[in-house]
Nucleic acid binder design. Structure first.
Lengths: 151, 151
DNA sequence: CACGCTTTAGTTGTGCACGACTTAATCGCA
DNA sequence: TGCGATTAAGTCGTGCACAACTAAAGCGTG
């Protein structure tokens, strides 16, 4: 991690100067790395993220799931239907508020948690960062997310 | 940028411990920030990345474009058709190798570069990182990309 | 030269991601 | 109490992203 050889001019249009491209490329590369592991579980990457939330907090509304993952209902609704079709969760209208839909894991969905425990370990290994680098990367990424969302 | 309050256990399944999620969320947040700016140019974010490459190196093959952006021809071919339909570029078979297609900017596409110069500045501003943080983030992201691609 | 292998671009099918919109339920307040 | 505004989930259309595959061109070696 030595400093960059030559610091780019402000407002460069060179692809390799763009932080946004480094971000976009890294995100796709990591997702690609997950793909074969998740395929064994029959999950896509966004489906895996939904399962992570549900393993943390079962019986959550579509709205709160969207808040946690920063996804619209127009993305989540079909995704949740696919997970329901695969037997991992059930969707039921809340009786106290019929607008809201509660997402609950099935036994199959809950049991998948054990199998999934190996996944973050394998990916963490593949990313090959030291614990300090990992923490630093998370902090920088959250800072970026917070800043661009704010303006 | 103080250290994290509590370092997560290895292999945690908590969403907010996952570097992969921070990456995925940041990437989408940044793309969302670009959207209104690029809409004025009539571009999507991946189309903007293609234009960045072309402003750097005109008359490039689909293959080399794919290498630069780490995208498959199955993603690029339809995207390039849309850019061609919008009058920003032309596609022509190479005479010396009829398998290959050369992508060339039209005058309109080349002229868009001036308008686009403001975009990275605005985004850099919105990300709100110091030059050091920006450089560090790029280094970490490239390290992650290289590591996960390698294994 | 011939024929099989590789390379290049493109097509097809599936699943996100998001804007614009719809429907139904609930809320708030005049 | 009634009715307009708000909220929740979902549909639809467009555009990535990628795997699996196809078609056509070029290459290499017997």
């Amino acid at each position: 991690m030595s400093p960059a050889a030559a610091e780019p001019a402000e407002g460069s249009l060179l692809l390799d100067d763009q932080l946004c491209f480094a971000l976009y490329a890294a995100s796709r590369a990591v997702t690609a790395r997950y793909r074969p592991l998740l395929e064994e579980l029959g999950l896509t990457y966004p489906q895996y993220l939904v399962m992570l939330v549900l393993w943390e907090q079962d019986s959550i509304s579509v709205r709160d799931l969207g808040t946690a993952l920063q996804l619209e209902s127009s993305t989540l609704s079909p995704l949740l239907k696919r997970l329901e079709a695969n037997g991992l969760l059930r969707r039921e209208r809340r009786r106290d508020d019929e607008r809201s839909v509660a997402i609950r894991l099935t036994d199959t969905g809950a049991r998948m948690r054990e199998q999934a425990a190996a996944v973050p370990l394998a990916i963490g290994d593949a990313m090959g960062l030291t614990p300090d680098q990992d923490a630093l990367a998370k902090q920088l990424l959250r800072l970026i997310t917070a800043n661009v969302a704010a303006g």
